[in-house]
Structure formats: structure tokens, C-alpha cells
């Protein structure tokens, strides 16, 4: 998972339209995958730091919790129904979103496109 996140970080920081969309986004997001915690700290749309948990001290604005198998399906070029979107994961009981949901919704296209960065390159701009 860490290697995938590192790759997503590189892609994000090299993707001008995402940096433009996220230029006002400076927050820490908790991504929890199968119980493993990853604290993603964004600054002005760039993913500045990926800190692995567990941590009880790191504040975060919102969290996406899911499992590795669901994320693997989410990252397929054409995911099955429910696995095609972060809210789909929630709908089918394979994900949970907590915290400041309004902050997420205000930056929803940016965050969803960031989460899709582990899909094959041709898919990068498909899901917003």
C-alpha cells in the first residue's frame, strides 16, 4: 500500500489540473486500509507527507476507511458497481467516511481524482 501511495503522490504532484483544483486544500486526511493507518498531509493541493500509523495524536479533517481488496477493485480500470466510487464503497458496506464531510464535499472532485490516481494512467481523468 505504501508503494501505491508513493506513486499516487508522484502523480498528483506532476498533474497540473489537480494541483489547480486543490490549490486551496491544505488538510490531513486519514486513509485507513484494513486497519492500517496512513495520514496524508496535503498542502496547497500537493501531497506533502504520508505518515504511517497507528497514531492517536495526529489530527485529521476527514477519514476514508476501507479494506485492501475493496481498494484493489476500486483501482480497476472499470470497477464493478459499488466499487467505482468512494461513496459506492460506503453504499455497499466496504467503506466508511468520517469527520468533516463538508470539507470533503467542498473538495470532492480533487479528492476523488486523487484517489483514482492508482488506476491505469488512461483512467486518471475519468472519475471526478
Amino acid at each position: 500500500m505504501r508503494a501505491t501511495l508513493d506513486r499516487m503522490q508522484s502523480r498528483l504532484n506532476a498533474t497540473p489540473y489537480l494541483l489547480r483544483l486543490g490549490r486551496l486544500f491544505s488538510e490531513t486526511v486519514l486513509l485507513e486500509v484494513g486497519g492500517a493507518e496512513y495520514y496524508l498531509t496535503f498542502r496547497d493541493g500537493r501531497l506533502e507527507q504520508i505518515a504511517e500509523g497507528p497514531s492517536r495524536k495526529t489530527p485529521w479533517r476527514f477519514a476514508l476507511r476501507t479494506d485492501g481488496e475493496a481498494l484493489a477493485q476500486f483501482w480497476q480500470p472499470q470497477p464493478k458497481p459499488g466499487f467505482h466510487d468512494i461513496f459506492g464503497l460506503v453504499k455497499i458496506g466496504r467503506g466508511r467516511i468520517d469527520g468533516d464531510i463538508l470539507c470533503l464535499v467542498k473538495n470532492l472532485r480533487f479528492f476523488k481524482d486523487f484517489m483514482a490516481l492508482a488506476r491505469p494512467v488512461a483512467q486518471m481523468e475519468k472519475l471526478a
Binding site: 466510487d85 483512467q123 472519475l127 471526478a128
Partner: peptide, 10 residues
């Protein structure tokens, strides 16, 4: 738009 994009097929 970002919300309803969840409802569009891949």
C-alpha cells in the same frame, strides 16, 4: 457535479 459523478458508470 462531484457528488453525482458517483452515479456515472465507468
Amino acid at each position: 457535479a462531484a457528488l453525482v459523478s458517483a452515479n456515472i458508470s465507468p
